[in-house]
Design a binder for these strands. Structure first.
Lengths: 338, 338
DNA sequence: CACCTCGCTTTGAACGTTCAAGGTGATAGA
DNA sequence: TCTATCACCTTGAACGTTCAAAGCGAGGTG
């Protein structure tokens, strides 16, 4: 533990040159079997570990990935990010990467942070969350050829045909690697579950049009509930009180729905509070709130999503081939509420 | 954006040597006013930013702090870590530090990770959470003279007299810098609030003895509730169902309590579910669950705590003086449940 | 005048790694 | 025998920064 163990220490111990040690680590096939073993043993004995800073200086690769940590919004859906971060960290380690956090108040501040992180720490890549329509961050990164993955598909263009675009690294406008959870499939599964339970008029409480994610969740319900009946859907800002109000409204129309599919656990929590017995309610994200209230909710495979983000980014960094986007299916967690 | 801007670029542009540019950045008083300005201008014009990797190689300071991200346990109290992490990241940036995440299954794995992070990334320091009795992590770090702060006081020794110890950096066994929230004050405030509301028999639902935090929360209740009546306290593993059971038990004794102070929102959520109207319940941590259920809960000043952690660590790293520990008061968020 | 001090600046080296190029000895082909 | 090829290994240089030391005028002191 006394002195630092560098590549030179190992070289001396194994009676080879620095470069040979380096080769054992990076291009083992160049080194004779016997020598390789001798060096490996010296590494083990001395407890040598390659210094990233020095390696970075030569190679330009920091093995650092950055993710933004957002302020907990309403606290209910906040734990989603928490779990995603944990998944990222766990998936990154075996791939040889570490996760660096940064905070930013808005997209512009985030771009300034990119600039700073790239210049001072020479980050290898970014994982972006909360993508939205007209996201300036992705184009900034793409223009500069900075590798990145988004958790959430690119909303600037429609559909999931991103794989038809040639290169994500080339800086060309267009697509980039992404991982997303199939939101529509989630609400569709919830709706189907309600249909199976005998419900025939199923309402939907979601967010105002324009948020890609919200629109998807609505579409999944609409496609499954039979017909997209505008009178059975309500759009509101996210929140418990808002969910209450919307549910109250929906349940007081003539021929009211007997079940409510909600775009978030916050909305569902509010709706469930005012729904009379027998009216089923489902939420989205399978948060702690859903667990405590006994809300049936759509669960996103966050650990899996995080792992795929790391895979994609590692692929771009190592291989260079533009990887295919990944769309993951959510699952329905059934509890008392539906 | 084309070529890299290094200290040499700036030096050439300002007609000085590399070292002078370095001095402007690190020891400005050594440089003549006029020269200083000229260099500063060149830096601004060129958009120069010091490369951390190169700086690290010379100075041994990475300006990186590491924090462990834990798997969301029951999901209810998980958001506490989330908010703490966000606070850390925000506080670290202006101080010139960045936050690196790591995951570890247990304390032993965590120590292995320290070893790795220190060797490969030369981390400046660690922020530890979830400290507990007989924590092997702190002694490992202290022995090696690695700077660290804990969020949560050292439970190995009693009391808050850590400041009497000479040095936290010296590697001597003993105390280290820490930040904590005054758990006892939190449950005391909740209990006092209940007393003010007219309750006279106030029960407590907490965790088994031995977890420092849990014992503290119990002590705050015990000291305020009048007398420490064992018959009014229950200890159980954390969880909603466990809270239900404990509340059920407490409320069925003769002369049952009319109010329940709980050591967590999970326990409180369970208790609140089975408590008849009129029986008040308070939780701890002010999580999303408390917000949704309308639970009165003790809120920890997490952003503040995180900021103080950064302060202490930065103090140790820059100054070297062993900083005083910090004990922060929590606040009571009053809602319908009490 | 010789010498020292002070304020400011420059020069060479070093941190630990990998790249690019070169060296060496053995084997093979002409 | 000379040269080419090959497998393996070593040698300088470089990445961008800061440390340690030294240079260099101007001013002061004996």
């Amino acid at each position: 533990m006394a002195d630092k163990v560098t590549i030179a220490t190992v070289a001396a111990h194994a009676n080879v040159s620095r470069q040979t040690v380096s080769n054992v680590l990076n291009t083992p096939h160049l080194v004779r079997e016997e020598t390789r073993e001798r060096v490996r043993e010296a590494i083990a004995v001395l407890g040598y570990r390659a210094n990233q800073a020095a390696r970075l200086m030569r190679t330009g690769r920091s093995h650092l990935l950055a993710v933004r940590i957002e302020p907990t919004r309403d606290g209910i859906n906040g734990s989603v990010l928490d779990r995603f971060l944990h998944g990222l960290t766990e998936a990154a380690a075996p791939a040889g990467y570490r996760i660096l956090l940064y905070a930013a108040a808005d997209d512009q501040a985030e771009i300034a942070t990119y600039d700073d992180l790239l210049a001072t720490y020479e980050l290898d890549g970014f994982v972006l969350t909360s993508t939205h329509h007209g996201d300036v961050r992705t184009s900034w990164l793409a223009e500069r050829g900075v590798p990145f993955v988004t958790f959430g598909r690119p909303w600037g263009r429609l559909g999931a045909d991103a794989r038809t675009e040639p290169a994500a690294l080339s800086g060309a406008a267009g697509s980039h690697p992404w991982v997303d959870v199939d939101n529509a499939a989630g609400t569709a599964a919830a709706t189907r579950h309600l249909l199976d339970a005998g419900h025939r008029r199923i309402g939907f409480i979601g967010w105002p049009e324009g948020s890609g994610v919200g629109d998807e969740r609505r579409a999944g319900w609409a496609a499954t509930a039979g017909a997209d009946l505008p009178e059975l859907a309500r759009a509101t800002v996210d929140g418990v009180a808002e969910g209450e109000a919307a549910a109250h409204d929906l349940l007081s129309i003539s021929d009211p729905p007997t079940a409510l599919v909600c775009a978030s656990d916050s909305l569902a929590a509010g709706a469930y509070g005012v729904a009379p017995p027998g009216v089923a309610v489902t939420g989205f994200d399978d948060t702690a709130v859903a667990r405590v209230l006994g809300l049936t909710s759509v669960a996103q495979p966050l650990a899996e999503a995080a792992a795929r983000c790391v895979d994609l980014l590692a692929g771009v960094l190592d291989g260079g081939a533009a990887p295919h986007p990944v769309l993951l299916p959510p699952s329905l967690v059934i509890r008392q509420s539906a």
